[in-house]
Write a protein that binds this DNA or RNA. Sequence first.
DNA 1: GGCGAAGTGTTAAATATTTAACATGTGCAC
DNA 2: GTGCACATGTTAAATATTTAACACTTCGCC
Lengths: 130, 130
Amino acid sequence: MEKKPDFKELTRRERQIMEIVYRLGRAMATDVMEHMSGRPANATVRTLLSVLEEKGYLTHATEKGKYIYSPTVPLTSARRSALDNVLETFFSGAEAAAAISILKKADAKLTEAERKLILEIIEESRKRGR
Amino acid sequence: MEKKPDFKELTRRERQIMEIVYRLGRAMATDVMEHMSGRPANATVRTLLSVLEEKGYLTHATEKGKYIYSPTVPLTSARRSALDNVLETFFSGAEAAAAISILKKADAKLTEAERKLILEIIEESRKRGR
DNA sequence: GGCGAAGTGTTAAATATTTAACATGTGCAC
DNA sequence: GTGCACATGTTAAATATTTAACACTTCGCC
């Protein structure tokens, strides 16, 4: 596959579908259809899934005659790109605010290992920073 | 203005423009044009800016005969929505990983106040969490 | 004031996207 | 094997988006 998927080039519906598939991890047309605004028909969604596969964003496995689509860009990579884009677009110079905002929501769910890691980063920041 | 701007409903070019305007804070057609992929003509960009204004996403002030566009959704609100969407789409169950990732990149730029705040959140997490 | 660069206003066509009907296929329960 | 629910395959039209040419205006400099 030569295409380098670029989420900025996705059309409205394509982008909506990509987000749904990432959320679900893998999905059939009916799954995607149920999550879409504007209630497009099943055939509509299938056409769009097919286009996305041609463009290299999705791939499908056939299970019992059914098409199960999944993203071609691995989650770790997609996470990186998506997060970078949001930071660059909305949080330029305020990246820490984004992190803090997330931590405030996630604090009850932090593991000990995560807390330890964050403390290490803070310590490192003290050594280097201001 | 009755419309509630919903970024998921933006077309490909509209979304690209919105991100550029948020990055720049405020922008004229030529500014936006310079940042766009595919090198659309000035008249193209102006049409799209005008559409976005009609849809309620942008507003413009006239300065010396020039249209300076800015977003209608305040940055704080846009930040919230964008970040939530990325977390929900790509980081479900792994929100802490997003925060950690950001902190790793931003650690040299953390202020003392930010470090203090993060430490407080970690402490709070210890009390409540696992 | 004149001029030119750079801006807006207007219009509509080219192009892309979205839509979905209908024919056909698959798998499973009976 | 049969029937049915639910899936895919195919085709093309409706709709939306993107594109930009050209006329006109604004502003700053000389």
